[in-house]
């Protein structure tokens, strides 16, 4: 394996019951690479990135993250989760904890940081997503865009090597999408490895090193944004792009 590779899928297959959701997935992600994954719903794109931090188990093939292979070994899973941050469509903040507590929880409980150190780190991350003044509010007192930025800060508090974004702007009002995308663009410019499932093609064009198109559990096509959008290779890709950009 290339030492520059941080996430690797080799012939990965997964089924939900009888439904073959991931089919022979091969994917190598370089350190610092920014990947956007798109495709119709049910194409397996969310499942693909959820396999990276073992929210989903794959049944065949090999997945390794930062040199650690994911399997039944629970310790390996814990190790991988320390390296991988995740942002969800529905934010999934803990509503009974303040914003600050949401951020310091994992550093204190998982990384065994002192409360002071965790708080300092949390405030840094809140500054980074420009929401430090809300530290002592509860998540449900914030707008959707603010909540998602808190969720990004929370994931960053474990200083992960890889960030996963699972449709981070799909549950947001149009006016709030931009504030979240701005934070993500900044993050991308700082060189963290990113895998992002999204339909924000503007974001893909602006920051992605590679765009992956999935359909029916397969990686249909992958290319640089320019080639992907200007010269899609497959009819299925052309069809998809026509639908999402056409209106």
């Amino acid at each position: 394996m290339n030492p520059e590779t941080i996430v690797s899928f080799e012939k990965v297959n997964k089924w939900f019951g009888q439904f073959h959701v991931l089919r022979d997935i091969d994917l190598q992600v370089r350190k610092g690479e920014r990947i956007v994954i798109c495709g119709p719903s049910g194409s397996g794109k969310s499942t693909l990135i959820r396999c990276i931090n073992r929210l989903e188990e794959h049944q065949q093939g090999r997945i390794s993250v930062a040199g650690i292979e994911l399997g039944e070994d629970l310790r390996a899973i814990d190790q991988v989760r320390k390296q991988v941050g995740m942002v969800f469509q529905q934010f999934n903040l803990f509503p009974h904890l303040t914003v600050l507590e949401n951020l310091t929880l994992a550093p204190i409980q998982v990384s065994k940081l002192s409360v002071e150190a965790a708080t300092e780190r949390a405030m840094q991350q809140l500054e980074r997503v420009r929401i430090a003044e809300q530290a002592h509010k509860y998540p449900l007192q914030l707008s959707g865009g603010q909540q998602q930025r808190v969720a990004i800060a929370r994931a960053l508090c474990l200083t992960p090597q890889v960030m996963l974004f699972d449709e981070p702007t799909s549950a947001l009002d149009p006016e709030m999408i931009k504030e979240v995308l701005d934070v993500m663009v900044e993050l991308a410019e700082q060189g963290i490895t990113m895998l992002c499932v999204t339909h924000e093609m503007g974001f893909a064009k602006a920051v992605a090193d590679r765009v992956i198109f999935m359909d029916q559990g397969q990686i249909v096509e992958q290319n640089t944004p320019q080639s992907f959008f200007d010269h899609p290779q497959h009819d299925r890709t052309k069809d998809f792009l026509a639908k999402i950009i056409g209106h």
């Binding site: 929210l55 989760r81 320390k82 969800f88 803990f94 994992a106 409980q109 929370r154 474990l158």
Partner: peptide, 10 residues
Amino acid sequence: QYEAAASLGL
């Protein structure tokens, strides 16, 4: 909530 906790390594 379970997924967020798991993704944080709890």
